[in-house]
Amino acid sequence: MPVLTVHSAGPGVTVQDLGRPGWTAQGLSRGGAADRLALLEAAALLDHDTGLAVLEMAGFGGVFSTDRPLRIALTGALMQASIDGVPVPPNTSQLLAAGAKLTIGGARAGVYGYLAFAGGIVTTPVMGSRAAHLTAGLGRALVADDILPLGGDPAPDTPPRRLDSTDRYSGGLIRLMPGPQTDLFDDATLARFLSTSFRRDPRGNRQGVRLDHDGAPFGVASGLSITSDLIVAGDVQLTGDGVPYVLLAECQTIGGYPRIGTVIPADLARTAQAAPGTVLQFTLLDIAQADATAQSDADLLRTLRQACQPLIRDPHDIADLLRYQLVSGVTAGDDLEQDGDGTQG
């Protein structure tokens, strides 16, 4: 069985998959990748299914190697990466040779980067998932000298691929759907919320991110007390001081703060990938409009697979260029000595 060696790791490198659905009633949120789309992009590049387990890197990567040649994929935040000094472009698959050092630095855009391996990370599942859920005490962040088991690459000779990714790192307009407490906010408060430009605060983690804004705080009419009820990732919760938080993968499962709406799943990755200082603004869809954006993981993966293209590599960056056959035909070498009529000159 191939293994991954962690030579160094940033403070937020964890194993993640699509999480643990079905445990909310027991007090455990789904968890899983903060940017689910990035995980599915990696699965598409590597011809894997939705059960792929990967490394999630929050802000900074590390140095990694494998003991067998394996294809890898880098998706999510745009992070500086190289294999033995040769740059690795984002949103691509590459062959990582046995013993080669893959170095992943800081994020140039976005927050969460993903490193996937063909065959996936095959640590022992806990409650149906390999994902670390740090809030719940399941798993932990990786550190230097950790060794993880990997699945075998079923097709190591597959040529490198690329996948054009939508820009979800620069913030912008985020779509909300109404929640059970949206009607508790009067029309003026809701209109002001939707017209406000928020800035991603430096305070945030896999539980949620705080949004700063200029102006008065937000609150429900008459300061109504809210009975604690179900919470899901994407809920926009307003704390007692009137500051909004967008809840992410490791959010709590119940809460009593009012929620003005819920970020639709299609836009939650854009929210998670917003670096501190990024500007976000919200628009409110009705239920029918929100439902029209819904797409299953399987359907999205199918679409992403169809969008994968061969990676055209820059010859300047191909250290093993001479290993490739660049001319499809072979001649005796005397064809250049022939006249235009095909006779020997």
Rank of each mutant, 00 (worst) to 15 (best):
V246E: 00
L285T: 05
L46C: 11
A272M: 05
D35G: 02
V243F: 04
R210C: 15
T262D: 03
A332S: 14
R200P: 06
T262G: 05
P265D: 13
G32E: 06
T124Q: 03
L40Y: 04
I147H: 06
T293F: 05
T50R: 15
T24N: 06
T50V: 11
A109R: 00
R140T: 15
T227I: 09
V209P: 01
D47N: 14
F64I: 05
T135P: 11
P315I: 06
A131Q: 03
T189L: 08
M57T: 08
A73E: 03
L284A: 13
Y324E: 14
E41A: 08
T124L: 00
F60C: 11
R175Q: 05
G62I: 08
A9L: 11
L176C: 10
H213R: 09
V330E: 15
A34Y: 10
W23L: 14
A274S: 02
L230R: 15
Q181R: 12
G172M: 11
L102T: 09
V86T: 09
Q80S: 05
E56Y: 10
V263I: 13
M1W: 14
L230A: 10
V54T: 07
G19A: 02
A116V: 11
D164I: 12
L52F: 00
P315D: 10
G51F: 04
V263Q: 00
I254N: 14
G256T: 08
L74N: 02
S8H: 01
T283C: 13
P159C: 08
T92M: 09
S129F: 01
L45N: 10
T303V: 12
P178T: 06
L18S: 07
A290C: 13
G139F: 12
T189Q: 08
V13Y: 04
F198P: 00
A216Y: 02
D241R: 13
T182H: 01
H48V: 03
A97R: 02
G110A: 12
